[in-house]
C-alpha cells in the first residue's frame, strides 16, 4: 500500500478537479477529470463517482420537477394574486358606493333642516296667535310645499342608509378570500420548510389536502377556475326547481 504522501501526490490534483467540477455540475470538466486518473484504482473510483453524480442529478431532478412546488409556483401563487386583486376591487367599490350614498344623503337632510328652519318663525307667530292673514297664507303655502318634500327626502335618506348597510357585505366576501390566501401561504411555508430539510435524494412531500366539500370552497373569483358554478340566484332557483324544490 502506498504511503499517504504518495496518494496525495498521485491523486490529489485529479480529486480536486473532480470535486470542483462536481460542485459546479460541469459534466465535461468532470469527464475530463475522470479521464485524468493515473492508475488501476481508476475504474472503482470512476464507478463510485458516477453513482454519486447520478444521485446528485436525481436529487436535482426531484427538486425541480416536484409537482406540488410547481403547482404552487405556476398556478396557485398567481391565482392568489388574482384573488387579492379582487379583494382590492371589492373594498374599493364598497367604499365608493358608501361615500356616494353618504354624499347623496347629506344634502337631503340639510334641505329638510333648512326648510323647517325657514318655516319656524311664522309657525311660532301662528302658535302665539300673533299672525296676520297674509302671513298665515304664506305659512300654509310653505307647509304645503314642505311636508311632502320632507317625507320624500327622508324616505330617500332611509333607502340610502339601507344601501349603505348592504354595501358592507363586501367584508364577508373579502374576508373569506383573504382567509383562502392565508391557507395558501401556510402551505407554501410547509413546502419550503420541507425543502430546507431535504437531505440527499429525499423527495418533497405533497402539501396537505385541500378543504373537503363539507367545509365549502369559498366565493367565486372572476378569472379563477372553480368548476361548474351557478351564475346567479336565478340559476340557483332553476337548479333547485329541477330537483323538485
Amino acid at each position: 500500500m502506498p504511503a499517504k504522501t504518495d496518494l496525495k501526490e498521485r491523486y490529489g490534483q485529479a480529486v480536486a478537479a473532480l470535486t470542483a467540477s462536481m460542485h459546479a455540475d460541469d459534466e465535461v470538466a468532470f469527464a475530463t477529470a475522470l479521464g485524468g486518473f493515473p492508475d488501476t484504482a481508476e475504474s472503482t473510483l470512476r464507478t463510485d463517482l458516477r453513482e454519486l453524480t447520478e444521485n446528485l442529478r436525481f436529487a436535482l431532478d426531484r427538486f425541480s420537477t416536484d409537482s406540488r412546488l410547481a403547482d404552487l409556483a405556476e398556478k396557485e401563487v398567481p391565482d392568489a394574486r388574482h384573488r387579492l386583486e379582487h379583494v382590492l376591487k371589492l373594498t374599493d367599490e364598497a367604499a365608493h358606493a358608501t361615500l356616494d350614498l353618504v354624499e347623496r344623503s347629506g344634502p337631503l337632510a340639510e334641505r329638510t333642516g333648512v326648510r323647517a328652519a325657514g318655516i319656524l318663525p311664522l309657525w311660532q307667530r301662528f302658535r302665539d296667535r300673533n299672525i296676520e292673514q297674509k302671513d298665515f297664507q304664506i305659512l300654509l303655502a310653505a307647509m304645503d310645499a314642505f311636508l311632502p318634500s320632507a317625507r320624500a327626502d327622508s324616505e330617500q335618506v332611509r333607502n340610502n342608509l339601507a344601501e349603505v348597510l348592504m354595501a358592507q357585505g363586501y367584508q364577508d366576501i373579502s374576508g373569506q378570500i383573504i382567509r383562502g390566501v392565508m391557507q395558501l401561504v401556510t402551505e407554501i411555508e410547509i413546502v419550503l420548510v420541507s425543502l430546507m430539510r431535504l437531505s440527499s435524494v429525499e423527495s418533497v412531500r405533497a402539501a396537505p389536502a385541500a378543504a373537503t366539500s363539507s367545509r365549502g370552497h369559498g366565493p367565486v373569483v372572476p378569472g379563477v377556475d372553480h368548476g361548474k358554478v351557478v351564475s346567479g340566484q336565478q340559476d340557483v332557483d332553476a337548479l333547485l326547481s329541477g330537483l323538485g324544490m
Binding site: 348592504m166 366576501i173 366539500s213 370552497h217 361548474k228 340566484q233 340557483v236
Partner: peptide, 29 residues
C-alpha cells in the same frame, strides 16, 4: 352563502335545505 358550485347546491338540497340564497344577495331575494 357564497358557495356557488352546482354540486354543493345539490348536496345542500339532498341534506334537506329549504332555501338557498347566494351572496351577494338582495333584500328582495
Amino acid at each position: 352563502t357564497a358557495e356557488s358550485k352546482r354540486e354543493q347546491i345539490v348536496e345542500a338540497a339532498q341534506a334537506g335545505v329549504n332555501g338557498y340564497v347566494i351572496k351577494p344577495f338582495t333584500a328582495v331575494t
